[in-house]
Design a protein around this nucleic acid. Structure first.
Lengths: 155, 155
DNA sequence: AGTGAAAGGAGCACACA
DNA sequence: TGTGTGCTCCTTTCACT
């Protein structure tokens, strides 16, 4: 709920403003950004490069509607790893991120080890992901699947 | 799991390729895109404008690490609406998207009505979101909170 | 729908405060 | 760090296919 965060690890208010602007519009031209925050374009360029280098900006991506690329069925799959396979969790999760249907992997606390946000072509495709890539691997103790009716990005 | 989707609602393979490229790198210059898919820059521009207009591309965003903007604590909050308040769910969810901590709202099937992906300054902040913005509203029948240890984007 | 050329604008490196 | 200049490359429009 806090609007102005506390711990900003060496970023000044201009950096935070740049991050906020780029989060809202990742294609805003460097010129416009510089204007908005009140610095010269070349300075702005340097700052943004630095924000990328330190990892404050992890990348720039188009937000593509899954329905338009033939993946209208979205689901959140909670996955529990078998307790005798915990060491493999890292490599396994990495392989999951490579499945085309997988859009996000959330490692969580609680009864399950992670949540998978997937977008599939149809229900058969969803079942294939669950049975072939998850339950079928012998690393998985259990899964629980929730259909996603709608997905909205926050502010 | 399907690599080549079936239902592509009037998009040809060039459109799909453009979407894929822009999903991977939202700042790829129009020129480079045109080269990669084998069309002229001007044609490429027209196509991308169309992809935005029809909603295949919903926007372009910088992927900002929440930890760098003072929000190192991430959580997934499952929220159940009171059954006598179901009509209010739409407006309520919209107000949620306006909370600075909220990054995603997933409307789901199952025991809960939606999942909230939040990024908070600290645990107090997280508690404030849950007690003041959720449990405190009288629309909420219950919540369940899972800490997010790590969040990876898929391919 | 796709193309090429031409003008205008933006990105980027560099030298300097 | 921040800035201003200048070169280069990209973007964007338009007449034409």
């Amino acid at each position: 709920m806090t609007d102005v965060p506390k711990d900003v690890r060496g970023l000044d208010h201009i950096d935070l403003e740049l991050l906020s602007l780029l989060q809202a519009d990742g294609r805003m031209p460097n010129n416009a950004l510089a204007d908005r925050v009140g610095i010269a374009p070349s300075t702005c360029l340097t700052r943004i490069r630095r924000l990328r280098e330190i990892g404050a900006v992890r990348g720039f991506h188009a937000d593509v509607d899954p329905a338009w690329i033939g993946r209208p069925i979205q689901a959140m799959i909670a996955v529990r790893i078998r307790s005798d396979a915990r060491e493999a969790i890292g490599r396994f999760a990495e392989s999951l991120a490579g499945i085309p249907a997988v859009r996000d992997v959330y490692f969580i606390s609680g009864n399950y080890d992670f949540l998978l946000h997937v977008a599939c072509a149809d229900v058969d495709d969803l079942r294939a992901v669950i049975t072939e890539r998850l339950s079928g691997t012998r690393l998985i103790a259990g899964t629980e699947t929730y259909l996603i009716f709608e997905h909205r990005r926050g502010a």
